[in-house]
Design a protein around this nucleic acid. Structure first.
Length: 666
RNA sequence: GCUGGAGUGGCGCAAUCGGUAGCGCACCUGUCUUGUAAACAGGUGGUUGCGAGUUCGAGUCUCGUCUCCAGCUCCA
């Protein structure tokens, strides 16, 4: 190093776009170290430690702690501090992997006893001490053989060393790539101020220069079990989740966001607003809709049904159960049996609750000869399906065992596929906008080529289907995220993901290209030349499930639904009993025009009625007292607490009607 | 399904070392009722999720089971 300096050989590099001449041996820290907010560098597109020495011709950019890559590194380094803390408290804990994730990080450990909430609290204290020590991260290259010797007490790390090179995509997904990259193995040592080694971990890096940067803007969140390398067949490790941010204020803001999400939780809001419940007596994952939730559900269904018909769908109806043969033909019993409820046997046949509507729609298609002139033939219904979801995954309305799909099947010629998919995609997006969601991206789920046994159909069929879907996605201009291995057993799918009011994403629509069921059901139509041809079918559920969508909307609006969906649209509150009749007369006029109204004629005093009304989140509170009555008027109180007094009755009615008609939020 | 946590009136919570279940809201009754987030008084309601066990005695300890929560694995 000093030799190089003496020679003072110069080299040319590009720093954040500017060409600069620097001495050989210059590190990223030399270039950016003065700014503590710069935590790592990007050299020729690759993230490296600040201690990394740049080479002639390198393109070097600073990476700040608050940009996405910087946050990932910060969180990854925090995961190391957590692991150090765990091994300090429990030297027998074996290390799994510890990657950064969205908003935080986790680290997996093999420990005798799972972590208790108290353990997590004390771990946080130990972490804080490590951070306050100002330990520095140092990268050290090791050979595979040396690594295996050094890590002889870390069986999981050794396994990762053995995997290096032959790493599969699954492992990358599971975060293993954070520990070992494709190239030389590296170990990161944490050194104390006096230069002694506090801890070390097999890791690809890079890391922040020192632990001080973590400050007090981190938190250990929770622990849970996780399978080693994400495989149910492997050991369960104890995973500790944490979060880390550039500043304490960022951490607080994040915790506030979590609190906001909790406040919006549809299970909580649904109970508060008397929308739906999940009676134990029914069984797990089965919801009942109360009158107010019933209004919401009916409004949605009525609108969605009408829109389907306008878009060229035909409304059909099918039963909830069927003899097993049907689900053999469709492929569900061979490929999907675990997710179906066990059969009930009677009259010598096994009957299954349906998990999908498509087989029954196929029977409708097949009920008579079909002409090419009928295509696209689009069958649609609100189909009740039942799925035997594993007990641990059932969750509110978003993951249930009994649900209503707004399910349709388009029977088309292969040539019609691109146009039909585009049509469906636009239809879905339009529906979401009507419901107040307007931020989307697409996910393309394809077959996992390594597990072909989970999917039916030839390579060629899959290739064609995938290409058609992908083209439609690209053409939509929306962001497209690949999801390898996520396809249905009978074909690839596109799903529409929507972001809600607080930025969370939900999977809603799915559009699936299916060449298998037409084969299985021997569907055919007569082409123009008189030949018999096999149609392609496109499955599409716009909201996925009505139940889930109600859950999503409840959280999106935090229960304050736009007037057209609100169970009660106008709630009348008289200033005193004497105005009950006058106010009811106004409400009755609204009611006769289809507006959902209620009058609070309870014995409560006026302020209490206002409070109750506010908590119920009705969009329009209508107030009438002596002044209003004298003027033939009413007063509005809106959800934000604002007020509009002395509105002539006719005007008030028009205001409410317009808001409902325009599907406006108020 | 797996790991951990938790189930106490409709909802939110309390109950010390194991000593026989209490509060607020809601609900019911009565007296009230005049302009923007809680009038006052009284009252009803619980086999502490369910079933065993330990104990003189179990909300509390043990086992089983069901349900919920967090995550894993899956998925609309």
């Amino acid at each position: 190093m000093s030799g190089a300096r003496e020679m003072s050989a110069q080299m040319t590099i590009h720093v954040a776009g500017d060409e600069r001449s620097v001495a050989e041996g210059t590190t990223a820290a030399d270039l950016f170290g003065a700014d503590r907010a710069v935590v790592v560098a990007r050299v020729n597109g690759v993230l490296v430690d600040l201690a990394h020495a740049v080479a002639d011709g390198d393109r070097v950019e600073p990476v700040r702690i608050d940009e996405p890559d910087g946050l990932m590194v910060l969180r990854h380094s925090c995961a190391h501090v957590l692991a150090q803390a765990v091994q300090q408290v429990n030297p027998d804990a074996k290390l799994g992997i510890g990657p950064p994730i969205r908003d935080g990080f986790y680290y997996d450990f093999d420990v005798e006893k799972p972590f208790t909430p108290e353990d997590l609290k004390s771990l946080e204290k130990v972490m804080q001490r490590i951070i306050n020590e100002g330990q520095t991260f140092h990268r050290r290259e090791v050979s595979d053989a040396d690594a295996l010797v050094e890590l002889k007490d870390e069986p999981y790390k050794c396994e990762l060393v053995g995997l290096k090179g032959g790493m599969s995509h699954d492992d990358e997904d599971a975060g293993a790539s954070v520990e070992v990259g494709a190239g030389t193995l590296t170990i990161y040592d944490n050194l104390r101020k006096d230069g002694s080694r506090a801890w070390g971990d097999l890791c690809r890096g890079p890391h922040i220069p020192d632990t001080k940067l973590l400050g007090n803007a981190f938190k250990v969140m929770r622990s849970a079990a996780a399978y080693w390398r994400g495989d149910q067949a492997n050991n369960q490790l104890q995973r500790v989740y944490g979060t880390a941010w550039p500043t304490k204020a960022d951490l607080t803001a994040y915790l506030d966001r979590l609190a906001e999400a909790e406040k919006r939780d549809h299970r909580k809001v649904g109970a508060e607003l008397d929308l739906f419940s999940f009676p134990d007596e029914l069984g797990s994952g089965l919801a009942v809709f109360h009158p107010k939730g019933g209004v919401l559900k009916r409004e949605m269904e009525d609108y969605v049904r009408r829109r389907h018909i306008e878009e060229g769908f035909e409304y059909v109806g099918t039963p909830h159960i069927s003899k097993e043969g049907l689900f053999h033909t469709s492929g569900h019993l061979p490929y999907y049996k675990d997710t179906m409820f066990p059969p009930m046997e009677f009259e010598g046949a096994d009957y299954y609750l349906k998990a999908m509507n498509c087989p029954m729609h196929n029977l409708i298609f097949r009920s008579r000869g079909r002409s090419y002139r009928e295509l696209p033939l689009r069958l649609f219904e609100f189909g009740s399906v039942y799925r035997f979801e594993k007990s641990g995954v059932v969750h509110g309305l978003t993951r249930v065992r009994g649900m209503t799909q707004d399910d349709s099947h388009s029977y088309i010629t292969p040539e019609q596929a691109p146009a039909e998919i585009k049509h469906l995609l636009n239809f879905c997006l339009g529906l979401f906008r009507d419901f107040g969601l307007d931020d989307f991206y697409l996910e393309l789920s394809t077959r996992d080529d390594k597990h072909k046994d989970k999917f039916v159909g030839s390579d060629e069929d899959w290739q064609i289907a995938t290409k058609v879907l992908e083209d439609a996605c690209v053409e939509s201009g929306l962001e497209l995220v690949p999801d390898p291995g996520g396809a249905a057993f009978y074909g690839p799918k596109v799903s529409v993901q929507a972001r809600d009011a607080i930025g969370r994403t939900w999977q809603l629509s799915t559009i699936q290209y299916d060449f298998n069921q037409p084969k299985g059901f021997q569907l055919e139509y007569t082409a123009a030349d008189g030949s018999r041809q096999q149609p392609v079918m496109i499955h599409s559920a716009k909201f996925g499930s009505i139940e889930r969508f109600i859950g999503v909307l409840t959280e999106h609006y935090a229960g304050a639904f736009p007037p057209w969906l609100s169970p009660v649209q106008v709630l009348g509150i008289p200033v005193a009993d004497d105005f009950n009749d006058y106010l009811w007369d106004v409400l009755a006029q609204m009611k006769s025009q289809g507006i959902r109204v209620e009058l609070d004629d309870s014995d409560d005093r006026f302020p209490k009625k206002i409070r109750n009304a506010s908590k119920s989140k009705v969009p329009f509170i209508l107030i009438a007292g002596a002044e209003d009555m004298a003027a033939g008027a009413v007063s509005f109180r809106y959800r934000d607490g604002s007020q509009k007094n002395g509105v002539p009755v006719a005007e008030a009615i028009e205001e409410v009607i317009a808001a409902i008609r325009d599907k406006r939020q108020v």
